[in-house]
């Protein structure tokens, strides 16, 4: 399909272009790019169009290492297209209508963070101490919004290895909110001083659980152990039809993560025969050649070691107190109900 080939190239570029806007998160960028794909596609029937969208989603998915939130956006848009009533006179008209709908939604969706911030405000009492994790745009919005009317102080985890907690720290301090960065390993130490935990999300899934920057799960476990509420913020386009039963069911999990290296492999020319069965992808050897002894002696993780670690983790629903989203305050059970009604209804 010639037209499909030409739009494939555009699709990824469009996606990246959409992501340039700081307000636009991956799922929205995906929806925007797919809606442009709709008008650019040469599909003549609904069946072809949906097929092309699925292919497009696949292309986007392959282009990134962490496709979870992007997938949520793609799925939402494709489910919407599939169920869209055919009322237009011509198929071309239907396609441009679909694109308008996609763009309209993206415009609306930008205001969702304000809605969530407003909703969260009701749960923040004056003089609260809040623990947050890494960097999340919606959490920043909520905290900055709360700062207008209430006194809050924030502990933020450093969130290794990307160190995005520092970004949160800088933005909050610039806004005049008292903020302290804590080690990822000091969460249990700080928990007693905290009123509640507030995290963003990569996606919320059908079990009612949460996928977010790695470390969220352990924070939730510690919060549960000290009886502190654990709130997650999620825009409704992050609702994702996925049912992970463990950390290793996430689409981001690959054999590299948590694999054991035989001691010889660090000596660059390690043969694959002696290593664990998981550890057979050629990528590992490629990366390990980058590693120099100098880096490993400086007691920080080498790039090679970081590769063995996950970016995101899964937080079980029983650890989450509430999820605030633009469609309202939801319990984890409500999330699964939403997802079932949206995609199975």
């Amino acid at each position: 399909m010639a037209s499909g080939e030409s739009s494939k190239f555009n699709l990824h570029a469009t996606y990246l272009k959409n992501l340039q806007n700081h307000e636009i998160s991956p799922p929205l960028a995906a929806i925007l790019s797919l809606s442009e794909l709709v008008v650019n596609s040469g599909a003549g029937t609904m069946f072809e169009l949906v097929k092309e969208l699925h292919e497009g989603a696949e292309v986007l998915k392959k282009s990134t290492t962490n496709p979870i939130s992007l997938n949520a956006g793609c799925e939402l848009f494709i489910a919407f297209v599939t169920l869209f009533p055919h009322e237009s006179d011509s198929f071309a008209e239907l396609k441009s209508e679909l694109m308008r709908q996609g763009q309209k939604y993206a415009r609306e969706a930008i205001s969702y963070r304000d809605k969530i911030a407003e909703l969260t405000l009701g749960f923040i009492k004056d003089d609260s101490v809040i623990l947050t994790h890494s960097y999340s745009r919606v959490v920043m919005k909520a905290l900055l919004h709360a700062h207008k009317t209430k006194r809050i102080s924030v502990y933020v985890t450093e969130a290794r290895p990307r160190g995005l907690g520092i970004k949160t720290y800088e933005e909050l301090t610039a806004a005049g909110i008292p903020c302290t960065v804590v080690l990822d390993s000091a969460v249990a130490y700080v928990m007693d001083k905290v009123d509640f935990v507030l995290v963003g999300s990569e996606a919320v899934v059908e079990s009612g659980g949460l996928i977010n920057a790695v470390g969220s799960s352990q924070i939730a476990i510690i919060a549960k152990a000290s009886n502190k509420p654990f709130y997650a913020l999620a825009e409704s386009y992050k609702f994702h039809r996925l049912f992970p039963l463990s950390q290793y069911d996430l689409p981001t999990h690959n054999p590299n993560i948590l694999s054991f290296r035989s001691p010889q492999i660090t000596a660059a020319q390690g043969s694959a025969s002696g290593v664990s069965p998981d550890n057979q992808t050629p990528a590992i050897n490629d990366i390990s050649t980058f590693m120099t002894p100098a880096i490993s002696s400086s007691r920080t993780m080498s790039a090679d070691q970081i590769v063995c670690n996950p970016d995101v983790d899964y937080t079980r629903p029983n650890l989450i107190s509430l999820v605030f989203s633009d469609v309202g305050t939801l319990t984890p059970e409500a999330i699964s109900q939403y997802l079932v009604a949206m995609f199975a209804g």
Partner: peptide, 11 residues
């Protein structure tokens, strides 16, 4: 029929 109404179907 909009995407946001589609999401609200879950309500």
């Amino acid at each position: 029929y909009t995407i946001s109404n589609f999401v609200l179907q879950g309500q």
